[in-house]
Computed example of a mutant assay.
Amino acid sequence: MLMQYYPHPQHDYSYELNKDMNFSAAHFIPDEQAGKCAHMHGHTYVVNITIAGDTLDDTGFLVNFQKLKELVHKRYDHRILNDLEEFSGMNFPTTEVIAQVIWQRIENYLKTVPNQPSCLQILVRETPTSYVLYRPKKDENHG
């Protein structure tokens, strides 16, 4: 994967972890305002996850990279995103919503680990020229 440099949030944590990954998935935005994106189509999404914290776990990890891959790649790769529960109803799988949903999924996991790191941001690149950056408000995470 080509090394990418993305905007990073300011923080006072001792450790910052970034994980890049990609997954291929199809989606559609069922609204006439979406133009041709109202029709089923696919992307190879590139995701960057930024996690920070002050304490490492018993194995010396802030978070195990493999767990992040399981939470994102395993869930979304080669799927029709509209078929997944988290994108049901009016929560259409736009890039903005995908970024927020991935953040929530990771943050829910991080709340269960003893060293309590925080997911500071999720970047989702839908095309080579377009990406969305999701950063939670201070009161959304525990950091």
Rank of each mutant, 00 (worst) to 15 (best):
Y134R: 06
G35C: 01
E70Y: 13
T127A: 05
T50V: 14
F87G: 08
Q4H: 15
G35S: 04
Q66N: 15
K36F: 11
Q116S: 08
V97E: 11
G35M: 02
I49Y: 00
G53I: 02
E107Y: 00
D139P: 03
Y76V: 01
Y109N: 00
M90G: 06
P30D: 11
P117Y: 04
Q33I: 05
N91L: 10
S14V: 08
D20T: 12
Y13W: 01
P114E: 09
E85L: 07
T94K: 02
C119Q: 06
I106N: 01
D57V: 11
Y15A: 07
P128T: 07
H41A: 05
V72N: 02
G35I: 05
C119F: 02
C37D: 09
P114R: 03
M21T: 10
H78P: 08
A52F: 06
C37K: 02
K138M: 15
T44H: 08
N82P: 01
R105Q: 14
R125G: 14
K111A: 14
H142Y: 04
R75Y: 01
N48M: 09
T94W: 00
H73T: 10
Y13G: 03
L56Y: 02
T127K: 10
I122K: 05
P114V: 11
Y15L: 09
F61H: 07
L123I: 15
C119G: 03
L84N: 04
V101N: 02
P9Q: 11
N108M: 02
I80M: 15
K74L: 13
Y45G: 02
E70A: 05
D12I: 07
V46F: 07
N108T: 10
Y131P: 00
P117V: 08
K138T: 14
I29E: 03
L123C: 11
V46K: 00
I102E: 07
A38V: 08
G60H: 09
D12A: 10
K138A: 15
P93Y: 06
V97I: 10
D83Q: 12
H27M: 10
E107T: 00
L2N: 12
G89N: 05
Y45K: 03
T44L: 08
G35Q: 03
N18R: 15
G42E: 11
Y15W: 14
I98T: 07
V97F: 07
D57H: 12
F61M: 09
C119T: 06
R135Q: 15
Y134I: 08
M40H: 01
I49N: 00
E140F: 10
L71C: 02
T55Y: 09
L17C: 10
T59I: 13
P136K: 04
V124I: 11
M3C: 09
I102G: 08
Q104S: 11
N22H: 15
W103S: 00
V97Q: 12
V132M: 13
D31K: 13
S24F: 06
Y5C: 04
P9S: 12
L68W: 03
P128N: 13
L68I: 15
L123M: 14
P7V: 09
E85M: 04
D31A: 13
F28N: 13
Y76R: 02
L2T: 15
